[in-house]
Design a protein around this nucleic acid. Structure first.
Lengths: 227, 227
DNA sequence: CGGGATATTGATTGATTTCAATGTGAGTGG
DNA sequence: CCACTCACATTGAAATCAATCAATATCCCG
């Protein structure tokens, strides 16, 4: 018996925070004092080693957090969807690059506002800790994915996570990112991702309506594959 | 120009915390009210899904945080060395298993003591956040390692990280874990780890004095390899 | 001085990458 | 409205790196 909803995915969907009472203080902070900023597809939101003076919250679209290795290799560390907060750093500068996967809108608040808030309000401080810990949990799942899983297992995991994150009704998932993005997230090549998707379709596990729309036809089989 | 000391390794070595003033409140909490507990090599410190009622701090020895997949595959998420704090969870239960890599001693404090401390003291709350964020940074580096790196790059990274963590003088590193542990951390097989080490020795990059002691002979070459 | 776990080395297999070509679809301008 | 184009995706064949299977070596400990 597994949980009804995978909590392990790359998206927390903090849009509507779970805890009751006063609601999410951080989300409120963004809502009240956040400056909305639009980014075009593939635009850089912040770059590696740039000063980390702001925290960000996705309003619309999707964002990728990634790093470029010396040669061309790129690793996407995480995707962020509406409601997700990202860009908060321990040190003074960003350790990764953030880019718009699609046209998107994010809210910005000054880092100082955030830390100040957390210093004054114990609940906000806990929320900040919870945020970091959630991010850690996602990164840990990512490690599990990359460490010892086959291409099929990775793609199956990815599709199920995506379904959990932006799954519409009826098991249809809109994929907001390119095959290259998926490959760089899963530690595979686009060719392998493509081949695996095709194999899943051939096997009746999924249905492909173009490259960006997938129907999860056999969720149990996908779950079994995710190892 | 790279940093003199890799901050990216799997060990923070929080033994002597960097910030001045009152010193580390959390470390102090462990020192004052922590209960010391010894574990034999390979003993389980806590198991996956067990209630997470305690936080832990390594005093002596090494600890591995890992998960066993349905089939035999195992992924080690992190190693913890003296000074490291581990086992703090967002939810009520542990998401991984913690085991003693070698005979070791850890200090335990009740989770409630920790959270209570953080609620009362803003500085402690920040420290807790910093702890989670450091763990996140390590996991992110781990993702980078596993995502698109060759066996050579992984082993080179590992050795350099280890040197940063428990490196004695003169570039000699005591490896506290088995080849199997290393393999399960790097997402490789013991055979590949072994062959890579041998290749490094043959190439003059390292010297092996038994399996558990390595001399980093050509650090620049190893750095170049770590990609 | 065994003896069993741990590590190294060797030969072969296999999954994924790489190289290469073809297909498809969205956006644009005639 | 259609053809063009360019980016993106799929498919195919070959190469490669690491895994697997198998045997031997070494080290630690009693």
């Amino acid at each position: 018996m597994t949980k009804m909803i995978d909590t392990a995915g790359f998206i927390a969907s903090t849009a509507s925070p779970p805890q009751g009472g006063s609601g999410s203080g951080l989300a409120e902070l963004f809502a009240l004092s956040g400056a909305a900023m639009p980014f075009a597809r593939n635009a850089e939101i912040y770059g590696e080693d740039e000063p980390a003076d702001y925290a960000y919250r996705v309003v619309r679209g999707a964002v990728r957090i990634c790093k470029l290795l010396s040669d061309g290799r790129r690793q996407i560390e995480a995707f962020h969807l509406p409601g997700d907060i990202f860009g908060i750093e321990l040190g003074g500068s960003h350790r990764f690059t953030a880019e718009a996967v699609s046209d998107c809108v994010v809210l910005l608040v000054r880092r100082s506002a955030l830390t100040g808030f957390a210093t004054r309000d114990a609940e906000a401080a806990r929320e900040l800790w919870a945020l970091a810990t959630r991010a850690l949990e996602r990164a840990q799942e990512h490690v599990l994915l990359l460490g010892r899983k086959t291409a099929q297992e990775r793609v199956a995991s990815f599709l199920l996570d995506l379904q959990g994150a932006c799954g519409g009704r009826a098991g249809t998932v809109e994929i907001p990112m390119s095959r290259q993005d998926i490959a760089d997230y899963l530690g595979l090549t686009i060719e392998t991702v493509s081949r695996t998707m095709t194999a899943f379709e051939t096997g009746g596990l999924i249905g492909l309506r173009g490259a960006r729309q997938v129907e999860l036809r056999d969720r149990p089989a996908l779950r079994a594959l995710r190892a």
